[in-house]
């Protein structure tokens, strides 16, 4: 019956693949960075689900399968890291200090801004890992009492901001070296920003990809340490 097909993983997978494919074509053909494929696909799928009264639970039967593949994708970041080990080791100090500064700036500015504007504690916790790639951010959020799906959503939003205006913003504020731009985009906006960085320049993209892993590690280490240090929980 048709209703059985609705709760099959096929629905979520087909809907996501078709929408993403069209969104990607729109992005390439238009050349407009505002048509970020992740942003456009997410909005279109939400609209389709709302209009057709398909529940999120039905969608996620298939969506979760695709989301699950983020896990091995994080492990796969070992490859670009390994391939660029010489470049990375040569510049390890600026890269490591830059990522650590960025990770701390991210934790402090996200939590600080939200707290000042009166966010509830769960929302503040959900915001803290927003610059980190989804699978790592989800783990951190859960450990500090954040709302995991909200964190996942904010990670996407953050990624889209970096993808839409990261390179332009960096140039505007005087960040000009390819390695600096790449590190800034990857540290702030993980994989989604990196996809845009790869379109800009190979070196920018490579360093951005590296920053996903490094910031993931840095934030995953800093957050529990800070929470332990300040006794938050």
């Amino acid at each position: 019956m048709v209703t059985e097909l609705l709760s099959s993983p096929l629905l979520g997978i087909v809907l996501t693949l078709v929408t993403f494919r069209v969104a990607e074509l729109l992005y390439r053909r238009s050349g407009l960075v505002f048509f970020n494929p992740v942003l456009v696909s997410s909005c279109v799928i939400i609209a389709v689900l709302k209009v057709s009264h398909i529940s999120y639970a039905d969608y996620s039967n298939g969506g979760d399968l695709l989301l699950f593949l983020l896990g091995p994708s994080v492990v796969a970041i070992a490859l670009p890291l390994w391939q660029r080990r010489e470049q990375v080791l040569k510049r390890k100090l600026p890269i490591l200090v830059g990522v650590c500064a960025g990770a701390l700036a991210s934790i402090a500015s996200a939590a600080g801004t939200a707290w000042l504007l009166g966010a509830s504690p769960e929302v503040v916790s959900s915001l803290v890992p927003k610059s980190v790639t989804t699978p790592i951010a989800i783990g951190i959020s859960a450990k500090i009492g954040g709302l995991v799906p909200l964190t996942a959503a904010l990670v996407i939003l953050t990624g889209c901001i970096g993808a839409i205006c990261g390179p332009e913003f960096c140039r505007l504020i005087g960040i000009r070296k390819p390695t600096s731009i790449g590190l800034a985009i990857g540290t702030a906006s993980h994989g989604i920003g990196t996809a845009r960085a790869l379109e800009e320049d190979r070196l920018i993209g490579a360093v951005s990809g590296l920053a996903i892993g490094l910031n993931g590690l840095a934030t995953a280490v800093f957050v529990p340490l800070l929470w332990l240090l300040f006794g938050w929980n």
Partner: peptide, 18 residues
């Protein structure tokens, strides 16, 4: 996996509706 990593983010983006 790295080439299609952005695709895997879409279901997380849809999760915002919750």
């Amino acid at each position: 996996l790295l080439k299609y990593m952005t695709l895997f983010f879409v279901p997380a983006g849809v999760g915002v509706m919750l």
